[in-house]
Design a protein around this nucleic acid. Structure first.
Lengths: 194, 194
DNA sequence: ACTATAATTGAACAATTGCTCAACTAGGAA
DNA sequence: TTCCTAGTTGAGCAATTGTTCAATTATAGT
């Protein structure tokens, strides 16, 4: 291999992810991307094919990042529910503070590609289904461990969690007082146990 | 007034609203709009100034439409809570079926204009605040009427409703089985009363 | 019928878009 | 050292973007 690439692919994808997340696919121009990732068009198109190709990797990167955050939060607690609470606070408070990205990028993507770009539509949908599946696994675990009543269904808990999570995220985006969000998350988890 | 306008402004704004709602501001080109509302650039720019001007009216139109729906649902019931439930079902099931617009246009707008177009950002935010205020009014009414426990706060109910509403709407967008959404709305209102 | 004025038209502008490609550069293998 | 190949560069393309405007059309008031 002569003259190997000078850029780090992960770094580039991560930077592109931040920009796409913030501005959305359509509002992000290839010039914006060139500046953000410090690569000339030739390199970008050689490495990723086109704008959609880079977006695809950026979206996958986002999903992986969320998965990693979830798993690391779970490791911090013996209780699955406590792990999920830490994850929620981390995603809705810490992350929105530093990134100021209001919505989950996957939700933004499903909305943006509802009527166009079928590949991106199905990718974002399947990443969301993957996440729901993981949540259902975790709630099944919590039921087994006696953290939640035995008569509850894991998939119902998973659905309820997502609905609350997405709604809260949207609300957190337009509220400056993060202690309010914190107390709403506490309420959310009190309600889950009941 | 010589040669009065041949188009109906409300109709035009309503058609523009549907397109902007579906595709978002950035993904909607002025050519798309010209086709949808059947007007040539000159007429559009004479009537609305620019793309942003038309979008502004479209967003206001959307907020009014939602208000009208809410009020008409409230009129159908003596109970405020039952009125809100009918509104929720109407917005999340009936409307998404015919329009296939996944998200609340106001939420989409706040997300799209978080870092650009400050006028549209503050407009969408203030329309959301207006809606929250109306909800708080209604929950105060429900508390007074004895529909909800006296020790609850109207603003807390309003917040909880919005979070659940937005989360459910997002979930409804990627679920084909509308009876599941119906049962989730029923659960949502059971939880409110408790 | 005439006129003044407002609305409509569509060609065309400059800017921006996603993307290409020929020329150039750099480093591993011979 | 000399290739050969893979990576980089940036000028620039064709298409699309938001917008303008002179010419045209239509009508309410005289």
């Amino acid at each position: 291999m002569a003259n190997p690439a000078k850029f780090n692919r992960d770094t580039v994808v991560s930077l592109a992810c931040d920009l796409f997340w913030k501005k959305g696919f359509h509002a992000t121009s290839t010039r914006d991307l060139q500046d953000a990732i410090d690569l000339r068009p030739g390199s970008i198109y050689a490495a990723f094919g086109n704008k959609q190709g880079l977006y695809t990797e950026a979206l996958r990167h986002y999903a992986n990042k969320m998965d990693d955050l979830l798993e690391s939060c779970l490791e911090q607690h013996d209780s699955v529910i406590e792990g999920l609470k830490t994850f929620t606070k981390s995603a809705l408070i810490d992350e929105t503070e530093q990134q100021s990205c209001d919505q989950c990028m996957l939700i933004k993507a499903t909305s943006e590609f509802k009527h166009e770009y079928p590949e991106l539509k199905s990718l974002s949908e399947s990443l969301l289904v993957e996440f729901e599946t993981r949540l259902a696994q975790l709630f099944a675990q919590a039921i087994d461990a006696g953290e939640l009543p035995k008569n509850g269904k894991a998939i119902d808990y998973a659905r309820h969690f997502q609905i609350h999570f997405i709604g809260l995220r949207s609300y957190a985006a337009r509220v400056t007082d993060k202690s309010l969000i914190d107390s709403l998350i506490e309420k959310m988890f009190d309600a889950v146990k009941a």
